[in-house]
C-alpha cells in the first residue's frame, strides 16, 4: 500500500544553541534516527513514556520544529526540505490535535473564531466560512449555540471537540493526535475515541495517534510503534505487537497495563536497573533498564530485525530473552 507519510532516519538534537554565555548542557537527542511509514486511511499508534520524543516527532511532521537529519515524505513530496513558503499550502493537509484542550485554544477567542482561523488563513470567504463552521460543529457533535462561547465556558471533552473541529476545518489528509485523549476522563475519552473512529471512516482520514495509554492505542490503531528515548524499538501490526511483543521494553509496557493480567499469568515486573534513563552513545538505548541485557547490548547498537511479518524489533536477544 502507498504510504501517505514516510519518515526516514529523522533525528532531532537539542543543544545549548551556541550561546557562549549559556550554561553548558549536554546536547539531548530527542529523536534518534526514527523511520516510520503510515498508509493512507490507517492509524499508527505511537507509544512511549513521557519525554521519549513522541511530541517532538509530531512537531517535526508539522514543521513546527526543524529536524537535524532525515527526511519526511508526505504524499510523495519531501516536505522536510521545503521552505515555509512552499510548505504553507500543505499545512491544509496535515493538522494536529493537542493533549491539553485548555492550552490549545486561545483563551480570549470565541469558539467561532477558533474554528474560523484555519479557514481564514487559507482565504475562505466569510459566507462559506460560516457554513463550513456549522458543518464542522455538527460533525464533532457540538450544538451551534456554543459558537459564541469562550473555551473557559466549555468542559474538557467539549474543548477537545473544538480542537478537532479546528483541525478538520481545512479537510486534512493526515491528523496528528498528540495525546489527544490523555487529559480527558475515561467516559469522555471513549466518546472522543468513537468520534475519531467515526470521522476516520467517514472521511478516510489517516491518523498518527500518539499516546502512553496502551489500551486506548490498541483500540484505535492498525499499527503500533514503540518509542524509547528517541528510538523506535519495535513496530508492527497492532495485534502482532500486542500479542507477541519482541522487545523487552514493549513487554514491560504491556505488563504495566493496570487490570490486564499478563497473558502467561505472571506478575507485573517492576522496571529493573536504573530508574533514570541513561542514554548511551554506542549500545542499546534500553540497556540500563533491560531485564535481559547482555554484554553485546552495551557495546553495539542493535539493528531492527523482522520478528514476524511486518513486525520489527530492535533487540538481538529477542524472544529468547523472555523470562
Amino acid at each position: 500500500m502507498l504510504a501517505l507519510l514516510e519518515l526516514r532516519e529523522i533525528t532531532k538534537v537539542y543543544s545549548h544553541g551556541g550561546n557562549p554565555f549559556a550554561p553548558r548542557r549536554e546536547a539531548v537527542k530527542a529523536v534518534d534516527a526514527v523511520s516510520l511509514s503510515l498508509a493512507q486511511g490507517k492509524t499508527l499508534g505511537l507509544v512511549g513514556e513521557s519525554g521519549c520524543g513522541k511530541s517532538t516527532l509530531a512537531k517535526i511532521i508539522l514543521k513546527l520544529v526543524n529536524s537535524n537529519g532525515g527526511t519526511v515524505w508526505f504524499d510523495g513530496r519531501d516536505i522536510g526540505a521545503l521552505p515555509e513558503k512552499e510548505f504553507r499550502p500543505l499545512r491544509k493537509e496535515i493538522q494536529i490535535v493537542f493533549q491539553d484542550p485548555a492550552g490549545s485554544l486561545s483563551p480570549r477567542l470565541r469558539v467561532r473564531d477558533i474554528i474560523a482561523e484555519p479557514l481564514e488563513a487559507f482565504g475562505v470567504g466569510r459566507k462559506e466560512r460560516g457554513a463550513r463552521i456549522k458543518e464542522l460543529m455538527a460533525q464533532v457533535g457540538l450544538p451551534e449555540e456554543y459558537l459564541s462561547r469562550l473555551p473557559l465556558q466549555l468542559s474538557g471533552g467539549e474543548r477537545q471537540r473544538v480542537g478537532i473541529a479546528r483541525a478538520l476545518a481545512t479537510s486534512p489528509k493526515l491528523l496528528v493526535l498528540d495525546e489527544a485523549v490523555s487529559s480527558l476522563d475515561l467516559s469522555t475519552q471513549a466518546q472522543i475515541l468513537n468520534l475519531l473512529v467515526f470521522l476516520q471512516r467517514t472521511y478516510g482520514l489517516t491518523y498518527l495517534f500518539i499516546a502512553h495509554n496502551l489500551s486506548v492505542v490498541r483500540y484505535i490503531s492498525d499499527e503500533i510503534a514503540v518509542m524509547y528515548l528517541g528510538v523506535i524499538v519495535e513496530k508492527g501490526p497492532a495485534a502482532s505487537v500486542f500479542d507477541n511483543p519482541a522487545h523487552p521494553y514493549t513487554r514491560l509496557l504491556l505488563s504495566s497495563i493496570p487490570g490486564l493480567p499478563d497473558r502467561r499469568g505472571k506478575k507485573n515486573n517492576p522496571v529493573p536497573g536504573s530508574a533514570e534513563p541513561v542514554r548511551g552513545e554506542h549500545g542499546c538505548c534500553f540497556y540500563a533498564a533491560c531485564p535481559a541485557a547482555r554484554e553485546q547490548c552495551r557495546l553495539a547498537r542493535p539493528v531492527m530485525r523482522e520478528v514476524e511479518k511486518e513486525h520489527w524489533a530492535s533487540c538481538p536477544v529477542g524472544s529468547e530473552g523472555k523470562e
Binding site: 493538522q95 493537542f98 484555519p118 488563513a121 481545512t170
Partner: peptide
C-alpha cells in the same frame, strides 16, 4: 510556547 500558538502556526496563520 503554549499549544494554541503551535496550533495557529500549524493552521498556516501568519
Amino acid at each position: 510556547e503554549r499549544d494554541f500558538v503551535s496550533a495557529a502556526r500549524a493552521c498556516g496563520v501568519s
